[in-house]
Amino acid sequence: MNTVRTYIILLVVLIAFAAAPRPLAAAITTNGIGIYTGIAPNMGGSMHSFVQQQHFNTRNGIHDINRVQDGIDTAKIERPMGVTVGIDWKVIIEEHFFFRAAANYSKSVVGGSGTTAWTDNGGISYYALDCRYSVATFDVPLLAGFTIKFWDDVRFYVGGGAAFASGMYDNEFSSEDHPDPFTRKGQFRGTGFPLVAYAHGEYYFTTRYAISATVLYYGGSTPLLRDGIHADTEGLNGKGAYDYARIDFTGYRFAFGITFYFGSDQ
């Protein structure tokens, strides 16, 4: 809670500084509002959980859930790739320094589901295990760094900071051909403060508008979370009713967008 309070205070200070009366804001040269969209490969990290570890022979979640076995019709479970959309506000100070606040939403849209082969008796018999992983995140990063303008119409940014991130992770594992059919669902909701690294390039096609390309790296996760939604006890000898997992925000995002600049100079 102290970390959340600190984060909110920093955000308020940034907004107050940028909206300050003219004499105070004399050092600020330019404000920019941008919108963008892109992809987030390998969202969610391993998405490992207790149920997977104890019942489905995995040690690293989606990274080692895939198995093949004669007689089992498997379909590879690919790591999910997500789509990300966002809006940001940049403040360029004295031509070389910037602050950036943004709001982003990312959701896995491709991958994360399939069928693997699974045994619960040491390999005497195998069964098909249908798996589904999905993850979505909402984050508000606060960044600072350095910017260089060159060739009169190109600007480059590099910097870092931290984000307040809220994650939503759902998993589902079911086996219909097992003698004791079961479904195990997990739903996890939590927040964290991942570190963020940022590299961004812009090309001004007018004096106020620029198209952009961005690479972001997030590093962080939530604390361990308990699935308090589902209590699946049917099948699997009643085990695995509750699941435990963290939501991993670590990974890259690649985005393209457009920015509108206003202020004294860009």
């Binding site: 490992h48 104890q54 040690r59 590093g219 509750y242 670590t250």
Partner: peptide, 25 residues
């Protein structure tokens, strides 16, 4: 500077955490 999860021990830590938390529950 800084980095997150130096030497990539996060998954090892997570494996212990899920077992301990489930046991405690």
């Amino acid at each position: 500077g800084a980095t997150y999860d130096v030497n990539r021990l996060g998954e090892d830590i997570n494996r212990y955490n899920v077992v301990m938390e489930a046991y405690s529950d």
